[in-house]
Amino acid sequence: MNHFPRPHTPRRLAAACLALLCGAHMAAAQAWSLTLAAASRRVFLHVGNGTYDNNNGTINLVQVTVPTAQLGNGTALAMTSNSTQATSLYGDNYATCPTPASQVMVGASYRRSNAFNGPASATLSVTSPASLTTTGGDTIPISQVSWTVSAPGSNAPNVIPAGTFNGGTQTLATVPANRYIENCHTFSYANSAVRAAGTYNGRVTYTLSSP
């Protein structure tokens, strides 16, 4: 596990969104888990493009276009991303996501000054809609979208796991006090059935909270 301090942004509840657009195989899981100096109670979260010193309203997009010849053939298709965030936001500029065109960086941290200054951890979760939808009302179950995780050069525990959206709120990770966790998410579309032609949209929201 690798430990070194990096800077921070104050909040006790943070949320970030990711848009999904559709027109898995589980990889080896890695993450960075970094020790931070104790400080006043705060949480920090970023998904895709972000900044560590103020709020950022950017909503990044992941998308896939299904070729006609592959419609519903059950072969999962990789989704691309419009994120450009390749390097970590935490001071050392480490290339956590070397290919952001196919990855989305997710990072979260929780700080407190001592054991009496708030809970021992914060909770990272993601909330997704039941379906991706078109303007005409056609739907694709959100469970058709999954993600794998990676963090080049790290052998730290799988602190933000791979998974599949379930149309509800899923707890992804527990962030201990004075710790920052970070890795890359690579999304894919299961392509398990033929769908009506159209552009299917949805939005998922990641939340980091400390009561």
Rank of each mutant, 00 (worst) to 15 (best):
H25R: 13
A24M: 09
V47F: 03
I59N: 09
A76K: 00
G153H: 05
A15R: 15
D92Y: 10
N158S: 14
V126K: 06
V149N: 02
P98I: 09
W32M: 00
N2K: 10
G136L: 15
N166T: 13
S192G: 10
I59Q: 13
A122M: 03
T135R: 06
T35V: 14
T75I: 12
F187L: 01
G118L: 08
A38V: 07
G137H: 14
D138C: 01
A101Y: 06
C17N: 15
N93Q: 15
L132M: 11
C97T: 04
N56Y: 13
L71T: 03
Q63C: 01
L172C: 05
Y110E: 10
A14W: 08
S102L: 12
A27Q: 07
L45K: 03
S150H: 04
T65K: 07
Y110W: 10
I59H: 13
S33L: 02
I181V: 15
L20Q: 11
S81M: 02
G74V: 06
A122R: 12
R12N: 13
N93P: 01
S81H: 02
G163L: 09
A28D: 09
V145W: 10
A193T: 14
V64G: 03
A190R: 11
P100A: 03
T171A: 07
A39M: 10
Q63W: 09
D92R: 05
L36A: 11
G107T: 14
R42K: 00
S146P: 10
A190I: 11
S143C: 11
A31F: 04
A19K: 11
E182N: 01
A101E: 08
G118Q: 05
N155I: 06
I142N: 10
D53F: 07
Q70V: 01
N56G: 03
T80Y: 02
R11G: 10
G57W: 13
R11A: 14
N54W: 02
H3D: 00
A14Y: 09
A38I: 05
R42M: 07
R12Y: 04
R6N: 07
L18I: 02
N191K: 05
F116N: 07
H185M: 15
A29V: 04
T65L: 04
N2F: 03
V43L: 04
R111W: 14
A78R: 09
P5I: 15
V145T: 05
G50K: 06
